[in-house]
Amino acid sequence: MWIVASGTAFMASVVLHAFAVRVFRGANSVVSFFGVGVVVGCTMLAVVGTQTGFGSPQFMAAAATYAFACELYVFLFTLALSSISANLLAKLHAESMTTAEVETLYDSRLMVSNRVERLIKSGFMDRSPSGVVISVRGKRLLRTLNRLRSFFGHDVLC
C-alpha cells in the first residue's frame, strides 16, 4: 500500500507542479516543485501514517521513496535544462544539424550570456551601471561552493 501511495503522490506532485509553473509564470521551477512536493508529500504521509502508524517501517519507506523520487526528478529536469548534451539531443529531435550549425547554436558568448541571465534571475548577480556584479547572495553561494571544493579536495581558487 505504501508504495502505491508514494508513487501516486510523486506523480501528483509532477502534474501539479506542471500546472503551477504555467499558472504562476516566472516562478523558480525548483523552488515551486519543492513547495508542491512538501504539500503533497505531507498529505501522503498523513494518510500512510494514519493507516500504518507514524514511525512504522511502511511510513519510513513511503517517506524515503517519495523523497528520493522527488530529488531524482529535480536532478533530471535541471540536467535537461543546463546540460549542453541534453539540449543538443532535444534540439536534434526537431531537425538534423551540421557541425557548423551546432557551433553557432552553442556559441561560447551566447552560453555565457544565458548563464549570466539565469544567475541574475536567481539573484546571484545584479546589473549595475558598470556592468554585471556579484550580489550578496552570490557571494554566499561562492563561499559555500569553495567550502565544498575544500572538503572534496578540489583546488580552492579563492
Binding site: 507542479h17 535544462l81 529531435h93 551566447l110 544565458n114
Partner: peptide, 22 residues
C-alpha cells in the same frame, strides 16, 4: 536510441515549463 533519449529529455523540459541551453 537517441530519439528515445531526446523524447525523454523533451518531456523533462516540457513538464516544468523550462527551455534553455547551456
Amino acid at each position: 536510441k537517441g530519439r528515445i533519449a531526446s523524447a525523454a529529455l523533451r518531456l523533462l523540459q516540457w513538464l516544468p515549463n523550462m527551455h534553455g541551453a547551456g
